[in-house]
């Protein structure tokens, strides 16, 4: 477990939890990234600006963090542009179809003991693991 970062990951998780909890207490919404982002594209009245601002906060936060600690964004995976495009399409289409991703179903949904979220998390974790296994065993870790 040479790459395991228990303290940073737990601390980061607590911060993510705090941000999600703030979204609930202040705005009464689930902090689901795919749901909030997908809602920007729907452009329905009164539902666009707060969503766009949240996404802006996410992107802006990445820019600020990168200025302080660029190593937090190291990507050592060997993936072609084609693989990234296919992955993006699947993530976008899948999260809209399944109503959520790691944040909404994962952190919020599991905390709320939602049966739908539990099923979603088990499903996407299983398929992620199968994909990682296939990429590793069939394609030798690069794609």
């Amino acid at each position: 477990m040479e790459n395991f970062t228990p303290f940073q990951s737990l601390l980061g998780g607590l911060l993510i939890g705090a941000a999600s909890a703030a979204m609930l207490v202040l705005n009464g919404r689930i902090a689901g990234i795919s749901g909030i982002t997908g809602g920007v594209l729907r452009m329905s009245r009164g539902e666009t600006l707060w969503r766009a601002l949240f996404v802006l906060g996410l992107v802006g936060g990445g820019a600020v963090y990168h200025a302080l600690a660029p190593e937090a964004f190291t990507n050592t995976l060997d993936r072609s542009w084609g693989a990234l495009i296919v992955a993006g399409l699947l993530v976008g289409f899948g999260t809209q179809m399944g109503n959520g991703c790691t944040s909404g179903h994962g952190i919020c949904g599991l905390s709320r003991m939602s049966p739908r979220s539990l099923v979603a998390v088990v499903t996407f974790m299983t398929f992620a693991a199968l994909t990682v296994f296939l990429v590793g065993s069939v394609f030798g870790g690069a794609l």
Partner: peptide, 19 residues
Amino acid sequence: LLLGSALFGIGWGLAGFCP
């Protein structure tokens, strides 16, 4: 819910990025 989550999982595992 099942199909959507499965598709998302494949994409997530493929590139290591969730939204």
